[in-house]
């Protein structure tokens, strides 16, 4: 019997493992190998160059500005997204004045918040390009309409504003999903705990800080890791929305874009692989650090 079970397991796992090996593991392994070569993407030959690709990364202004921009996104995007999502989720689950449920229409809001998640990144990019376009764009139009005409500008063409504009889109697109995620986590908090807190006279803010947040902390942790990975990417949005792309003056350059350009425009696949490997380790480190730094006592409910 046992023997038959093992054979069944192996049989069931073989196909997916093979696919995983061919389409995930093997390209990864090749990227690691290629990072130490000067392969140009077209030749059948690739010469080994040791660590040269990695050392020249640190004197590549483009890569460094990409690193800086991704770093900035890493600081800003997850933080704002999580704060906003926690706020909205709390309003949806405990916003009513008697704290017995969400604000009126919370079901409808929940669906509306999720909408951006349904749009592909490409559509988002094109859409927001129209929002930010200077002469007849939505944003400048709204600013004019409410009497803030002096704030209108060419959002995507000014180095100081282009990256914030891109980050705003990332946050806008991501918040909805985490609202739904956090709201679900908040709803699984046992009623009696919340009620006990209320009987003890805890206000909404205190309840949120002392009860809700500790209960959903695991979910926030996961959200932070996901959002961190999102912030280290940003390739598609930048490629579609920004001047250049990556401009103006490299102010929106991200690692993904530098990598893409090195590989597919300059034909430096070895160098691009080195960037990919670097990004891989950055993401890995980030995940490990984020999980460790945010580790807290788990709330156990008997």
């Amino acid at each position: 019997m046992r023997h038959g079970k093992n054979r069944f397991l192996i049989g069931a796992l073989a196909a997916p493992l093979l696919l995983y090996g061919v389409f995930v593991v093997s390209p990864y392994a090749q990227a690691f190998y290629l990072a130490f070569t000067d392969w140009n993407g077209l030749s059948g030959q690739a010469g080994a160059v040791g660590f040269e690709n990695f050392t020249s990364l640190w004197s590549d202004d483009l890569f460094l500005s990409a690193l800086r921009n991704n770093g900035l996104m890493l600081l800003v995007v997850p933080l704002i997204t999580i704060v906003l999502a926690l706020f909205f989720a709390a309003m949806l689950t405990m916003g009513r004045s008697d704290q017995r449920g969400g604000i009126r229409g919370s079901r409808a809001y929940r669906i509306v918040y999720f909408f951006p998640q349904l749009l592909s990144v490409a559509i988002l990019g094109v859409l927001f390009q129209f929002v930010f376009t200077p002469n007849n764009g939505l944003l400048n139009g709204v600013l004019e309409a409410v009497g803030l005409g002096s704030f209108t500008r060419s959002w995507l063409a000014e180095p100081a504003w282009a990256l914030p504009a891109v980050m705003a889109v990332m946050i806008w697109a991501a918040v909805g999903f985490y609202v739904v995620l956090f709201a679900a986590a908040m709803e699984s908090i046992p009623r009696d705990v919340l009620e006990a807190a209320r009987l003890d006279g805890a206000g909404r803010l205190a309840t949120f800080r002392r009860i809700t947040l500790p209960f959903v902390w695991d979910t926030v942790q996961v959200a932070y890791v996901y959002l961190g990975i999102l912030a280290l990417d940003g390739f598609a949005l930048v490629q579609i929305m920004t001047v250049g792309p990556g401009g103006p003056n490299n102010s929106t350059e991200v690692i993904g874009l530098t990598l893409y350009r090195a590989a597919f425009t300059y034909g430096e696949f070895g160098y691009a692989s080195a960037m990919g490997v670097t990004l891989f380790f950055l993401t890995l480190t980030l995940t490990a650090v984020a999980l460790r730094a945010t580790r807290r006592e788990r709330v156990e409910v008997a």
């Binding site: 061919v22 093997s26 090749q30 190998y33 059948g44 030959q45 690739a46």
Partner: peptide
């Protein structure tokens, strides 16, 4: 590109 590389052995092959 990755799959083609794999199927033909490797990049250098």
């Amino acid at each position: 590109a990755g799959a083609a590389g794999l199927l033909s052995g490797c990049v250098t092959a």
